[in-house]
């Protein structure tokens, strides 16, 4: 049945139904979409980072690691801190190509199994994770246990005043190729880098 008037293709009842449903949909979207965007917004906002000075170059040697506390998240006290193990680059064992960002090797203490803090045991020359038994050798390469890739590293640079500074974290695969920082548990060898894509919110090294 067409409408009341000649040439009407939609009845008034159907038109009113459509208008009411559309108005309801618009009203629902008006509060759902902003709330949803609010909740998932942090996925897309890139974290800023500062180069953090960790001491003069004379503090660090090739032979052993020095522990440095760095702040990853400001304003939440101890929960925002993390630990870096820092030593001077040793060309005899560090086979990855040298550039301006790795005169000093800074390893993240975050275990690459599921993120517990590893500690360097100098007697064994190994990094040991307390949670599930991950073990890394002196260079941070996986020596045993469940970790899926070597320990993450930090960019380091030396200022003209002779201070060592820590930059953002980056991840490495088993050949120490650099990748943008991934979470623990995500392998980067083979198809790993495609299964676990880089994210929008991790801090990157500025072009310099």
């Amino acid at each position: 049945m067409p409408g009341t008037f000649d040439g009407e293709t939609v009845t008034r009842r159907r038109f009113m139904t459509a208008v009411t449903h559309s108005a309801g949909g618009v009203a629902a979207m008006a509060f759902t979409l902003p709330a949803l965007g609010f909740a998932i917004g942090p996925l897309f906002s890139r974290e800023p980072f500062d180069w953090q000075p960790i001491g003069p170059t004379s503090d660090f040697t090739e032979q052993t690691y020095v522990t440095r506390v760095l702040t990853i998240v400001q304003g939440i006290g101890e929960a925002g801190n993390s630990i870096a193990y820092v030593r001077k680059r040793d060309p005899a064992i560090d086979t990855e190509p040298e550039d301006q960002y790795n005169h000093f090797v800074a390893l993240s203490s975050r275990c690459m199994h599921l993120g517990c803090p590893v500690r360097f045991v100098s007697a064994a020359q190994r990094f040991i994770c307390p949670c599930h038994g991950g073990v890394y050798d002196f260079r941070g390469m996986v020596a045993g246990g469940p970790p899926v890739r070597p320990l993450d590293r930090f960019y380091t640079r030396v200022t003209s005043a002779g201070m060592v500074e820590l930059g953002p974290r980056y991840s490495v695969n088993s050949e120490l190729h650099r990748f943008s920082p991934r979470d623990p548990g995500q392998p980067l060898d083979g198809v790993g880098q495609y299964l676990y894509p880089k994210r929008f919110d991790t801090s990157i090294l500025p072009q310099s």
Binding site: G75, G80, K198, D201
Partner: peptide, 17 residues
């Protein structure tokens, strides 16, 4: 997975929120 954990943490690191 990476985006899911970013959602849970509200960012790439365990943060203030």
């Amino acid at each position: 997975g990476p985006y899911l954990s970013d959602f849970l943490r509200a960012g790439p690191e365990f943060g203030a929120t």
